[in-house]
Structures are given as structure tokens and as C-alpha cells.
Design a protein around this nucleic acid. Structure first.
Lengths: 209, 209
DNA sequence: CGGCAGTTTGACCAACATCAAGTTGGGTGG
DNA sequence: CCACCCAACTTGATGTTGGTCAAACTGCCG
């Protein structure tokens, strides 16, 4: 019923269009949800970090690719029994509704980024997103200065932001030149002033709850 | 409990950030969901056509603006009683889950468009979207040739596609020059060959279900 | 000590944005 | 019924951002 599976970095977890045998949740590692056009242009639609859910109850075919970007472990359930549980336990459907509304909000925020933000704003937004998500678990509030470890290559970042990898690299260099970030190694970014970076992202300041 | 409300073209139905007193469904007309940055850049996140749902059970504040683009009539319910109904009738939560998963798919398709498609492909995609949606109700399948009435101005289209209104206008002219569309009046578009336009959009051909 | 994937940087170019006139056509008041 | 008006639209000239192509650099792993 409940099976752990491992994938190594770069491996496909789900192929878009394939029948979907299972739903799952990410235990460790990072994966992406993406769609690819016939000519190879690809857009990453979301990041999957530990505790995120993979799959769509009620859908027979996967609409997107899911790819492991680091080594990934997931905990999977066969889809049919899972759907039966939903039918029997109404509050689970409500929980899933909550989750899909959250995903919808995230997708729509990303639409604003893709449609209207400049390359520099996209990079700043991305760094803020990763900073927020990798600190959420630890504390309720994002500290003003912090260090984040990027799970993605420049190319994967470019697919997430609707840019080319060269533009991503250039904007990293620009933000570094301007002191907004400090690069220590290719995958580690120090953010000396998180609110300042958020301002670079063109976002509303975060709610103070 | 159930109240009909009317809005004239251009009027705000919901302001982003405001408390959300009601949920509703569109009875007639066209509205948009959008987000705006402080400096005025705006991105439309979705179209609301008759039968579409407005609002988020379980959310106190509206995350987006909803604006009438034509005269609109909605049928609204106060939110609290509506949420109680969800708690009592589990299959409604499941229906809402279905709907929000559909919206999530639509949002993600649009992310691919915003991040990766050219201006020409964006226009073609938009026309195909409108063609499909205004014909869905009438028949299961999209006919090869058809005429659609655009509810949106060029500016509203540009906000939906992440372009400027001038680029939208130019690409309309290009598609017309190339025979992919025929413009009869500013708001009416004939599509002589829907599959060909879909190919221009860079999309997979539609499933033959 | 290579080899190679990932990255950075540079030079150049194309697509789209911006700025600026014109044009169209539907609605209104005379 | 006509003439005018104005918002919506089209088209042109020019500018800028980010894409493309190409070359060199880094650092990790065998």
C-alpha cells in the first residue's frame, strides 16, 4: 500500500501523458513539475520539496513531467485505494482542496513573474522563494540575513524563470556586483538583507502576521 | 442567501486584499482575474465566463482583483453559509476539488505560454482558447472553421498574454496577412482552419476523445 | 593530471517595448 | 440623419532587454 521509492538526480519520476498509477509525497530531495513543447522549449511549473504532494486524485493521466533534480525519495500510494479513502473520509477531500488552492495561488503568483517581471526581478524573486521555503520549516519568520543552498543548476533555474541559462548567470553576477547577494561556491547564496532582495523582486513586502 | 448582482464593463467586482464576503458564479458576461504590481504592471491570471466560479472557500481575503470586462451578472452567496454547506455535503468539496484542479491545469498551461511562447504563438493560443471555450457549451468538439467574438479589448488581451497592446495589434495583423484569421470588425475573428491555428499556437493537437 | 559538466563572460542580434502619429468606427447630440 | 467625437485600434520609427552563438574558466571526480 505504502511504498518508498528512490530516484537519482536527473531521473524522471512521472512522464507527462503517461497513465498515473500512484500518488505520492516527497520525503527528501527536490523535484520539479514541468511541461515541454515539441521543439524542446521547457517551462518548470513548480518546485517539489519535502512534504509536497505529487499526483491528482481523479486523473487517469499525468498532465506534466515530474523530474528529480537532486536524489529524491518519495512515499507512494497506489492511486485507486487512495481515491477510495478520499470518498470515505470527507475531511481528506477538504484538505486536498486546501492544498490545491495553495498551489493555485503559487501558480498565479508565478504567472505574474513570468508575464511581467524583468530578468533581475525574476532572479530576486526566485532567491526569495527558495529562502522562504527552506526557512519556513525552521521558523515562522524569515530572518533578515540568511544563507540558502540552491538545489537547482543554472539551467534548471532558467527553465523555472522563463529565461536562458546565460541570462540567469549574468543576473546572478549583477546582483553580486551590487551587493544584494554573496556567492560562496556555485550553489550557495548568502542574502545579507532579505527585505532589500524582496524589494528587488518587485513584490509587496511580506505580511507581518 | 442567493443574490444576483450586476456590474457594468470596467467595474471592479472584487479588489485584491479586501475581505471576501461572498462566493459567486458568473451568470452572464466576461470578467478577468488579475494581479497588479505597485508600479502598475498588471497580469491577467484567468478569464471568467458564464458558469465559472468566483471565490475561495476558506479564505478570508481575496488574493486577486476580479474585474468586469463586459457587463456582468453574477449570482452570489454569502461565504459563511456556503462554507457550512461544504462541511455538511462532502461531495461538494469533491466537486470544488475537481474545479480547482482544472483551474490549476489551466494556470499551468498559461505559465508555459507566458514563459516560453513567442508573441505570435501567444495570440494564436489565446484565439484557440476563446474559440474552444465559446464552443464547448454548444458541442463536444471544436469545428474546423468558426467565428469567435472577442470579449476583450487589445489592452485586456495584452494583459492576459504578458505583451503590450501594440504587439498584440501587430500580431493580429500578421496572422490576418498570413490568412490564419480573418478580421471582420475589431472584435470578431473568423478562424478558417482551427487545427492550423492550433499548430501556430505551438500546442499539441487536441485529444480526439 | 585530464575530462567534463556546469558556469561565466563577451560580442552580436532579434524580438518585443516604447514613443509617436495617424486611422477607424460606433455612439451621441444636434 | 448626419456630423462629430473619442476610445480603441493600427502602423511606423527607434530603443532596450534578453536571446544566441562562441569561447574560456572552475572545480569536482575519476
Amino acid at each position: 500500500m505504502k511504498i518508498y521509492r528512490s530516484y537519482s538526480a536527473g531521473q524522471a519520476i512521472v512522464w507527462g501523458g503517461d497513465p498515473m498509477e500512484f500518488v505520492a509525497s516527497v520525503v527528501s530531495g527536490t523535484a520539479t513539475i514541468s511541461r515541454t513543447m515539441e521543439d524542446g522549449r521547457a517551462q518548470t511549473l513548480g518546485l517539489l520539496l519535502p512534504s509536497d504532494f505529487i499526483g491528482r486524485p481523479g486523473r487517469d493521466y499525468a498532465p506534466y513531467d515530474v523530474t528529480a533534480v537532486t536524489d529524491v525519495v518519495i512515499c507512494s500510494f497506489r492511486r485507486r485505494p487512495f481515491e477510495q479513502i478520499i470518498d470515505e473520509m470527507p475531511h481528506i477531500a477538504q484538505r486536498l482542496l486546501e492544498m490545491s488552492l495553495d498551489e493555485l495561488d503559487a501558480a498565479r503568483d508565478w504567472m505574474l513573474l513570468l508575464g511581467r517581471k524583468t530578468a533581475r526581478e525574476k532572479i530576486a524573486s526566485f532567491l526569495c522563494l527558495v529562502a522562504r521555503r527552506s526557512n519556513d520549516a525552521k521558523a515562522g519568520k524569515v530572518p533578515p540575513a540568511l544563507t540558502v543552498n540552491l538545489p537547482l543548476t543554472r539551467e534548471a533555474i532558467s527553465e523555472f524563470l522563463g529565461l536562458t541559462l546565460e541570462t540567469v548567470s549574468r543576473q546572478f553576477s549583477n546582483l553580486k556586483r551590487d551587493g544584494a547577494i554573496v556567492l560562496s561556491g556555485k550553489r550557495t547564496v548568502e542574502i545579507p538583507d532579505y527585505p532589500a532582495l524582496l524589494a528587488e523582486a518587485g513584490d509587496d513586502p511580506e505580511p507581518e502576521d
